[in-house]
Design a protein around this nucleic acid. Structure first.
Lengths: 350, 350
DNA sequence: GCGGTAAGGGAAAACCTTTTCCCAACTCAG
DNA sequence: CTGAGTTGGGAAAAGGTTTTCCCTTACCGC
């Protein structure tokens, strides 16, 4: 209203302290503290008067001082060696969301593949008295380059290889692969191929095994998965191998791909050969990387690892650990989800 | 060596305090503090003895207590609107790197487009006594949904619209566009088209203007830029418009695209029409999104905004502000860089 | 009017470190 | 031997909050 109104609380030069609030309200700091925290005994009027004074002065408690005394800082560290890869991103968002809802801030620490850097970050976080640490990475089957096994704060591993005896959360790759292959089976596809990434990845084997299992369960012919790279180019090349022989006899009528980029290469290669998707061949990808899945023609059905849910769960798990609840150690696998777009066609009866 | 060796410093249950170090070394905490910080006067032996004791005990000073006393927490907040978009990612990596090198930790805060959430985060950061804040977003021409204009800590804006009078760093989009178009000119291309994103983006206009300027400077025919969406599909459609008319007369021999996805659509559409890249038409993209630029056939020449450098500069700018150095307010534009791959061909003389 | 109890509020320790000021002892010149 | 200056080191306050324990006052029943 008037020009000399109170400035916005947050803009004051030196932050107002509890002592000042107490002085302004005519009480001791002890009483002021108790009034604001709902502790201690005092008349309702006193409590309200102190609260009002604090509000007017724009008092905000100094977290540093609070953390020093209580043994919690409401701060956790997020350690990753994949800052900014497309997997850890949704995961980090999930972690961050879960924690922020509980008033916890997140230190972001990118350790690359550098043990020294990792050690540095962990020590810095410990010095800053984080309540716990979440470790995440770019590969589910690799350790971070840093030892987190004997810290004095709880640690949760998400989408990275956990230490033995620790709490770990990963996606259920086999389950995700089942989702895809069973979808094909339900649609009446009979000759289902699998094109995947490099042999060195654990997920490649997990998914391939699930692929074989499902086919076997349905008495369908099983072909050896084609393993290569996580690239479009490999998708092209694999198509050349699968669809190279003359005559359509023996051609697959469905291809389950290890990731969306391979799937994109497959779809493009099929189109170049005049093979129609989904009419002649259905295609399913993995990762549900929207920017890719939505740009293929037709848009790609893909397995989503629910990474942001994974991150959220990791955040909550850490929180309960911090709160003293013992969590069952071991690896918990979270389900994937099939996002159906248009690269598989409709069921025969549909 | 032996089984009863000291445990790893970091694994001790209650952290070792300065008091314990002092007691173990037989001095006062004051002396211990001074010994470890290189302050005060004492014999070299005393100092060394205290240091050795601290090392042996695995002493690490409590950052909380330090921060409370000094007025710095060696912590900054990174506020973003685009957690995990592909622009803010390299940017955040740059920020983080620059700061970590200086012993500063980064709070990651995702505010989405939610003013309430933003306010919440800013207050939490202020409570935790961050030394400064870096604001970044997904669009250079939009404000974050939160007011950072009157904080008691310095703020640096990177890749987002700064408040008036603040320090802002952005990419030089016009310069980047010049790089692309001049490259075409140098290669002898004469009929250069421009396909870009939605009109509502400031960068679209900046780049389009630079495009016109360069053509005019070289006396080349200038066509109205085609504005649409940031998608592959739009790249396809734009090609249909530009190359739809029968006969090659009047067809462009170069296309400068507003981003890499458009460029990808353009390249694919050209190939489908039997138009060769780069022989018949050169293509340049924007953003240098490697995963796209390297998957096009041929690989895409693209303008890189050097976002991680931008982030690094933002981090350093904030640091000097925190250190009390007055920084020139206003927007500083950082140069782009052309990453040459194979979608433009070689110069005529080459 | 008195003893007991409950209510309201304050003093002070604690968290851990840094820094200022001070003191004791030693050295050295005169 | 005395006074000044230097050296080595400690006591204590400061930073902002929480919490335990204690004190004062008021009220109640008898």
């Amino acid at each position: 209203m008037s020009a000399d109104a109170e400035p916005a609380p947050v803009s004051a030069k030196p932050p107002v302290t509890l002592r000042e609030v107490a002085a302004a309200a005519g009480v001791s700091v002890a009483t002021a503290s108790k009034a604001l925290n709902g502790q201690g005994r005092m008349t309702a009027e006193t409590r309200e008067r102190i609260r009002e004074t604090a509000r007017l002065l724009g008092f905000r408690p100094n977290s540093l001082a609070q953390s020093l005394l209580r043994k919690r800082s409401f701060t956790v560290g997020l350690l990753t060696n994949d800052t900014y890869g497309r997997f850890s991103l949704p995961l980090m968002a999930g972690v961050s969301d879960a924690l922020v809802d509980n008033g916890v801030s997140v230190f972001l620490c990118n350790v690359e593949d550098d043990t020294r850097l990792g050690q540095l970050h962990v020590e810095a976080m410990l010095d800053k008295r984080v309540d716990g640490i979440i470790a995440t990475g770019k590969r589910i089957d690799r350790h971070l380059p840093v030892d987190l096994s004997n810290l004095r704060v709880p640690v949760v591993y998400a989408f990275t290889q956990p230490d033995p005896g620790a709490v770990g959360l990963v996606s259920d790759d086999a389950g995700g692969a089942r989702l895809a292959v069973e979808h094909f089976v339900r649609l009446g596809r009979r000759r289902i191929a699998h094109i995947s990434g490099p042999e060195s990845f654990a997920v490649v084997h997990a998914r391939a095994q699930a692929y074989r299992d499902v086919l076997e369960e349905h008495g369908l012919p099983t072909a050896e998965p084609l393993l290569g790279a996580w690239s479009e180019a490999w998708g092209h090349e694999a198509v050349a191998r699968l669809f190279g022989k003359a005559g359509r006899v023996g051609w697959p009528d469905a291809v389950f791909c290890g990731n969306d980029q391979i799937a994109r290469g497959v779809i493009d290669a099929l189109r170049e050969r005049g093979i129609r998707v989904p009419d002649d061949v259905g295609v399913i990808g993995f990762d549900n990387w929207e920017i890719v899945a939505e740009a293929t023609r037709p848009p790609l059905t893909s397995v989503d690892m629910n990474l942001s849910t994974l991150g959220r769960e990791a955040g909550l798990a850490l929180l309960s650990l911090v709160g003293g609840q013992p969590a069952a150690p071991g690896i918990r696998k979270l389900p994937c989800r099939l996002v159906v777009r248009q690269s598989c066609g409709r069921p025969p009866g549909g």
